[in-house]
């Protein structure tokens, strides 16, 4: 009689330990999801082809002059700021969901790119950056000689 009870206690203890571990894990998980705006904005997609890569980012309502693009190795960084509507006396926000302020976003590319040949365009609130693969990084085709 005593032994099953003892085993039950052990099992309970294990369960609590497990729950505690899960709770900590969850806490870590959820605190990780609240990425600050400055890093999560703008959302960017990376599209690739054999010898070039395209990065598109949704940055609506920004003057393209205020967007900075820099490339270092295989990392593209887009930074800038989005200004909030200026309010006059007596005006108020009823709802404010659009992010504003400065942002800085780095995207790791699938390969190294030639920083001198980067093209960027801004259309309908979407930034498109085209980055060609650097010549030295291109895959080389090795032909097999037959004799």
């Amino acid at each position: 009689m005593l032994i099953p009870g003892f085993r039950e206690f052990n099992w309970m203890q294990d369960m609590w330990l497990e729950l505690d571990r899960m709770q900590r894990e969850m806490g870590r998980l959820f605190s990780g999801t609240s990425i600050p705006y400055s890093q999560s904005f703008p959302a960017a997609n990376t599209w690739s082809r054999e010898n070039d890569v395209l990065v598109t980012a949704e940055i609506p309502g920004v003057d393209p002059k205020n967007i900075d693009i820099s490339v270092e190795g295989d990392v593209l960084t887009v930074s800038g700021s989005r200004v909030m509507e200026e309010l006059a006396e007596g005006e108020a926000y009823h709802r404010q969901e659009r992010p504003h302020g400065t942002f800085r976003k780095s995207v790791r590319l699938p390969f190294r790119v030639d920083g001198n040949k980067v093209e960027a365009s801004y259309q309908k609130g979407t930034l498109t950056v085209k980055l060609p693969r650097i010549e030295s990084d291109k895959p080389r085709k090795i032909s097999i000689k037959s004799e």
Binding site: E85, E91, A92, R98, K124, T126
Partner: peptide
């Protein structure tokens, strides 16, 4: 779309982010 709503003295302004829309 993420939307801002501003109340002004004589109007209500609604601003919505719709990237890719013209």
């Amino acid at each position: 779309p993420r939307t801002d709503i501003i109340e002004k003295a004589d109007s209500i302004i609604l601003i919505a982010d719709m990237p890719g829309v013209d």
